[in-house]
């Protein structure tokens, strides 16, 4: 078995490696078990984390990528040292067909999500660009930074520097309030380390509830303004 982290670097080449080795390929697994006969079973999220699938490799060799954060870190155990140094194989020519020209920051900056103590995130459930204010108002009542899920950014309702998730910012604030966020794996990877997670969503099956400490099953357009009013009344009183 070859295990790799499911990062944006390694998950790009891992399937190619599986093909070249004649191996089975399973991506972004969250657990692995052995059955009674010693056969491997991988568990992974499907249908945007709404369901889980147990997957059995049918080949002797398996290449699998592991979802980031799926396993807690363990203290290193005493073991005979078996680290192999692999040099560049002599027959591999430097590939010219794919050339890295450089790297750049994707957003403009000005939003400090990683440093924020509190974050209120607008998800697709806010409904449109004019309704992001529902999240922004609650953020300001909580002295929180404003975050956004990927669909909100992709739709242009908020700029990319607000994006929380594996392709945006990885955050772990003291308080994380998700408004109308369904909770894709990429989003959960970006915020599930937060100390207190609140989710407001109309859909009781939304995957965000699987990581929330407090879940409100209701329309965010009713609950968020109610929260804002209570917080403002408290501040002025």
């Amino acid at each position: 078995m070859v295990l790799l982290p499911h990062t944006y670097q390694s998950a790009e080449y891992a399937p190619r490696l599986a093909v070249r080795l004649g191996a089975a390929y399973v991506a972004s697994v969250s657990s692995a078990t052995l059955d009674a006969c010693g056969g491997l079973r991988f568990s992974r999220a499907i249908l945007q984390a709404r369901l889980r699938a147990e997957v059995r490799p049918k080949r002797r060799l398996v290449v699998a990528t592991v979802q980031i954060g799926a396993f807690g870190g363990h203290d290193p155990v005493e073991s005979p040292e078996r680290v192999f140094e692999v040099g560049r194989p002599a027959d591999v020519e430097r590939h010219r067909e794919r050339e890295i020209l450089g790297r750049e920051a994707a957003g403009a900056g000005g939003v400090d999500l990683p440093g924020a103590e509190r974050i209120v995130t607008a998800g697709r459930g806010v409904g449109g660009p004019d309704e992001v204010s529902v999240a922004a108002d609650l953020a300001s009542a909580l002295d929180a930074e404003l975050g956004a899920s990927r669909p909100v950014v992709d739709n242009g309702w908020l700029p990319r520097e607000h994006q929380v998730g594996s392709s945006g910012h990885i955050v772990a604030p003291n308080l994380y309030v998700a408004l109308g966020v369904s909770g894709s794996i990429q989003h959960l990877m970006g915020m599930s380390g937060s100390r207190v997670i609140v989710a407001v969503n109309r859909d009781p099956e939304a995957p965000i509830f699987s990581v929330a400490h407090y879940g409100i099953v209701a329309d965010l357009h009713d609950v968020a303004p109610a929260l804002t009013r209570l917080l403002e009344a408290r501040r002025s009183g």
């Binding site: 999220a45 499907i46 709404r50 369901l51 699938a53 059995r56 490799p57 699987s210 990581v211 400490h213």
Partner: peptide, 15 residues
């Protein structure tokens, strides 16, 4: 196919 889906389940209940 190199893999086979054995079962599909609802995710474990929340935290």
């Amino acid at each position: 196919a190199g893999t086979e889906t054995e079962s599909v389940t609802l995710p474990p209940a929340g935290a």
